[in-house]
């Protein structure tokens, strides 16, 4: 657990240094295992790609000068096919490995629903007395996996909380499942990531992760707040 936090600190340090302010939508400041694994994948790919890019630049730079006789097959077959296939195989293996770990298999203990419409979100989650409906605020317990069932009312939208997990589209006529987990209690920003008309830019929402001992008792209060200013379409 402690090592995990250290990693997270390193990961969030770079963009923090770059951006110099809060990074509430940053995929590089992960706050859950799904986003963290993708962030690791990114840093790994960035390192490898930088090396490859440098290699190409050096090879191009070295071409300026006296002609040299390198066998053609060494360029096309060894470098072109062999080397690139080897690198790509590593990439693919990493991608499939991480991807398979993030795909929801079986059911998580907690299941919530996110229903997108033009232009807002209706969430359904367990409350102290049965299911509670909220607008633009989703309540989840911290520290455990949650499955979000994503659906759409009208056009295609996408559910995205960058610090917790990747995105999944809300497609009319389909139910999509996204598994996410917030390691710590807190508020996490989310938004619609698929263009959905003139209100596309104003479709943010918030995921509130409650300490698991407070959940789902804490849900009602905030739900009422959110409800008062909500109102579908």
């Amino acid at each position: 657990m402690r090592g995990w936090k250290v990693k997270r600190l390193i990961m969030s340090a770079v963009p923090l240094a770059l951006a110099g302010c809060d990074t509430e939508l940053s995929a590089l400041s992960p706050a859950g295992p799904a986003a963290a694994q993708i962030a690791w994948l990114w840093w790994g790919m960035l390192a490898a790609s930088s090396a490859l890019f440098l290699l190409v630049l050096v090879l191009v730079a070295m071409s300026f000068g006296a002609p040299r006789d390198v066998p053609a097959r060494r360029w096309t077959h060894t470098l072109g096919v062999g080397f690139s296939l080897a690198v790509l195989s590593v990439f693919l293996a990493a991608g499939l490995w991480v991807g398979e770990r993030l795909v929801p298999r079986g059911a998580a203990a907690v299941e919530v629903r996110a229903h997108a419409f033009q232009w807002g979100w209706r969430f359904t989650q367990p409350g102290p007395r049965g299911m509670v409906e909220t607008h633009d605020v989703l309540h989840i317990p911290a520290g455990e996996p949650v499955d979000v069932i994503v659906t759409a009312e009208d056009v295609i939208h996408a559910f995205w909380v960058p610090r917790l997990a990747g995105k999944i589209d809300a497609v009319p006529g389909r139910q999509n499942r996204l598994r996410l987990q917030a390691d710590e209690p807190g508020r996490y920003a989310g938004m619609c990531a698929e263009f959905c008309g003139v209100g596309h830019a104003i479709m943010p929402f918030e995921v509130i992760a409650h300490p698991s001992e407070d959940w789902p008792q804490a849900v009602t209060a905030t739900a009422r707040d959110a409800d008062s200013d909500g109102g579908e379409q």
Binding site: L41, W42, G95, V98, I168
Partner: peptide, 9 residues
């Protein structure tokens, strides 16, 4: 890569 695409898409 599928997982990175889920974030960057």
């Amino acid at each position: 890569l599928v997982p990175f695409n889920w974030q960057a898409h």
